[in-house]
């Protein structure tokens, strides 16, 4: 029982727990892996640059530790990125949209359509090559309440946007 003096049968409420979440397409994992490789490669190049031209350590062995740490975090984040990817999903319901993500810290954000201020679709140059895009759903005020899914099919993003726009329109 959620409340004392119960008037509402909470068991009859539409429950998020029973929702089947839509997972992201496999190309999105490829896209993320490429993005991740670029970031890691950039860090690696910066480290190399500092080692060759900078004057930080006098001996060699600290550099072995530095690159060791780099390697370990790269492996860890590579592994985590896959794990996180398979835990991410979204659900477009009749009255709201839900986005769930995270491995160690699971989050599930729900935005009712009647609170939506506007919807945006994004597509970076890399995502375009894969036919992917992202969708952001903005609510009034605080940015923490904004929902943003990246790495879904561009056409799907457009469909969701259409759907939400129509829902928002009906509401008023």
């Amino acid at each position: 029982m959620l409340f004392e003096n119960q008037q509402i049968a909470t068991a009859a409420l539409p429950s998020v727990e029973t929702v089947q979440f839509q997972t992201l397409p496999p190309q999105a994992l490829k896209l993320r892996t490429i993005g991740w490789c670029i970031t890691q490669g950039f860090i690696f190049l910066v480290l190399i640059g500092v080692m060759l031209f900078g004057d930080v350590f006098k001996q060699k062995w600290p550099w072995i530790i530095v690159f060791g740490i780099w390697g370990l975090q790269a492996i860890y984040f590579f592994w985590m990125a896959r794990r996180r990817f398979y835990r991410e999903g979204y659900a477009v319901r009749e009255k709201d949209i839900i986005h769930t993500k995270g491995y160690w810290l699971r989050t599930q954000l729900t935005v009712p359509y009647n609170r939506v201020q506007h919807v945006e679709i994004e597509q970076g140059p890399l995502a375009r090559a894969f036919g992917l895009g992202g969708i952001s759903v903005y609510t009034a005020g605080d940015s923490g309440g904004d929902l943003s899914i990246s790495g879904i099919e561009y056409a799907e993003a457009e469909r969701i946007k259409q759907f939400i726009a129509q829902k928002v329109g009906n509401d008023e």
Binding site: R106, T107, L109, T110, T139, G141, D142, G145, L147
Partner: peptide
């Protein structure tokens, strides 16, 4: 305006959950 459910791995072990209610302010 929006509801967020958070669950850290420790929360999961104890079957707990955090909730954040976002308003326009």
């Amino acid at each position: 305006q929006a509801v967020v459910l958070h669950q850290s791995f420790m929360d999961a072990r104890y079957q707990l959950v955090d909730l954040t209610f976002y308003t326009a302010s």
